[in-house]
Design a protein around this nucleic acid. Structure first.
Lengths: 351, 351
DNA sequence: TATTTTTACGCAATCGTTCCCGATATCGAT
DNA sequence: ATCGATATCGGGAACGATTGCGTAAAAATA
């Protein structure tokens, strides 16, 4: 029922040659005469011949494609990162296969097995928030599947890692809140098992300490699904906003946490920043258009994707096994907006 | 250098059987004894055998995967639609390969040729705004590659089409503006060649006429890149907002147009809705959190993806060629918020 | 002219899997 | 005991492309 593409065999038959000769002509191999080569090339162009990548994959055990696993493409950070990956991949002649784990351990396993069975030449992975056991990944890695970790990295895996400086980003965001006069700063954190969550917590903690504020573990609430479901954010905020002394600012450690925190405040008529200041990690393109304009810690997502892809392709195309793995740590940028404005400054006209 | 997976040959060798017998056992074919079948199945499970989909694709000329072409995954509408497609595809045992055209004609061609060479069993396509010539798609379709159009459809292609009722959505949005007292309503439209642009323009036009307002072509501005680049939106608004009589409301025909319109207003200190009301198509998850909360026409993106995938799979798995193609047209929903509030109503406390 | 070297091409194996067809064995029936 | 039927399995081709090896013809050398 499916249409049949033109194959090397069709060319061979039409030109009265063998498939090997045709192959050599197309591959511009040695031991081929100039005239037969031209003959084949012309005919191939004429009938619009395209090599079958599946047959090639089967034979060569490589596919010139790289796999991506992220939790959600609807997340701005990830879609920007994917754009970065694609830009580099296409430049090097690689195609990209995108999969989503939706923060599910099972789907992550299914995805990476699908990718490896599809003979991807390598993978770029940001692990799911649910994943605690990484053997499905390390096993493939040890069997020589090149893997680059980005964003949420697997610390135990000895490979390239591309991350944002979470500690510094959290440190600067928290310091920003302190400088603007907020006293009781709580943290809304993602899954406690993720390396980025730990780093962001450390940055938050250190900023408090460096400014002479006591770190209180009670002012940290975790959302194991990274804020993907509103209810867990709601529960966390119900908790954080009923503490004594009263929380007057929130630092949110992930995109969905930040926006869902805003949604909570709107639903509960909490005035930002008068009743509660808010700053959080976010890569949304519209945080400046929010009500109020939202202060954010922004990650260089596109750049992270770019670098990840470059490292992966370097790994794939390297002749000898790479042993010297560097970790690229990129700076996060702080955008201070109205959501963290000092409350004593009674300017009506923001901007 | 790459790891080698366990094949049917390994099982045959280990058990002293032929590959055909092993294949039959795994396929649960007839003409196989119960005991050899169990023997093979047990051993296969033990060594974690997984069939090689590439070899299967080569042999069967199908891959149990479906291709998607959208302009941008960073667009909320498309990422939601992709989620809908994936949910159905996985249910039927299909994998999904996502590609982005970035509104580029060349990339669209490259993508669909890549997908077809990868032996996808079918494609779900929303064409790029740049594309005027559809032969790269119709050609494959005529060679029996199942294709479902969604969102931006190819009118000339006789296949399943899944769209939102653009006319109705535009009609209702425009009527909403009129009912709220706005007089000079301009339209910010996407690429004029797209069917959805035409339908939305018709809806806007009809709503004006039905309410006794003259339709004036001068109050329509087109953005050929669908608002993907801010400058074209800026130019369009510079034009629309300098018309006499003065434009007091804007209806925007696409996601990026709507948000970039807000950005423009913010940059130019235009008060929404006092100086300019705004409603537009958008599938962002947090238009309610924008400043001001944005009135939108929202498409059932997930549902559209779901239906598209179901139709495609129906097409793929149909024994006889399908000739009776229905077009699914889903209703768009209007969310009225502060950005289109009547200006004479002087409520301070919105909600 | 005879021999060697080079050139240019075909043959066949390979990748992992399925499936048609042929082969063998077992069993019941005559 | 012999034959046919059936059950069960192996051999080998096929999918599309590459490639090492063998070999014929052409070219170069003696």
């Amino acid at each position: 029922m499916k249409f049949e593409a033109v194959t090397i065999k069709d060319i061979a038959k039409a030109l009265g040659l063998s498939t090997s000769t045709v192959s050599r002509a197309l591959r511009d191999s040695y031991e081929i005469s100039e005239e037969t080569k031209q003959l084949v090339l012309n005919y191939a162009k004429e009938i619009n011949y395209r090599p079958n990548p599946i047959a090639l994959s089967l034979k060569e055990k490589r596919s010139r494609s790289i796999g991506i696993i992220v939790s959600e493409i609807a997340n701005s950070f990830f879609s920007q990162a994917i754009n970065g990956i694609e830009s580099v991949a296409h430049l090097h002649g690689y195609n990209v296969i995108i999969t989503q784990s939706k923060e599910s351990y099972e789907r992550e396993i299914a995805n990476i097995q699908y990718l490896s069975s599809r003979s991807v030449d390598g993978c770029i992975i940001s692990v799911s928030a649910e994943t605690k056991d990484y053997t499905h990944i390390t096993e493939l890695y040890e069997r020589n599947l090149p893997i680059v970790c980005f964003d949420r990295v697997i610390e135990a895996l000895n490979t390239f890692k591309v991350t944002v400086n979470s500690f510094e980003g959290a440190y600067n965001a928290t310091t920003h809140l302190i400088k603007n006069g907020f006293k009781k700063i709580a943290m809304l954190s993602g899954s406690s098992v993720l390396s980025i969550s730990k780093d962001r917590l450390s940055g938050y903690r250190q900023a408090l300490i460096d400014n002479g504020i006591e770190f209180n573990e009670n002012y940290v609430a975790y959302c194991q699904h990274g804020g993907l479901i509103y209810e867990e954010v709601e529960a966390a905020l119900n908790y954080l906003l009923n503490l004594k002394p009263k929380t007057d600012a929130i630092f949110a450690g992930a995109d969905k946490l930040t926006t869902n925190c805003m949604r909570y405040c709107k639903a509960h008529h909490i005035d930002i920043p008068k009743q509660l200041a808010l700053i959080g990690f976010s890569n949304l393109d519209f945080t400046d258009l929010l009500c109020p304009p939202l202060s954010v810690v922004r990650q260089p997502a596109f750049e992270m994707g770019r670098i990840s892809a470059e490292l992966l392709i370097k790994m794939i195309e390297s002749k000898r096994p790479i042993t010297d793995f560097e970790s690229k740590i990129l700076p996060a940028e702080i955008y201070a907006r109205a959501s963290t404005e000092p409350i004593n400054t009674k300017k009506k006209n923001e901007k």
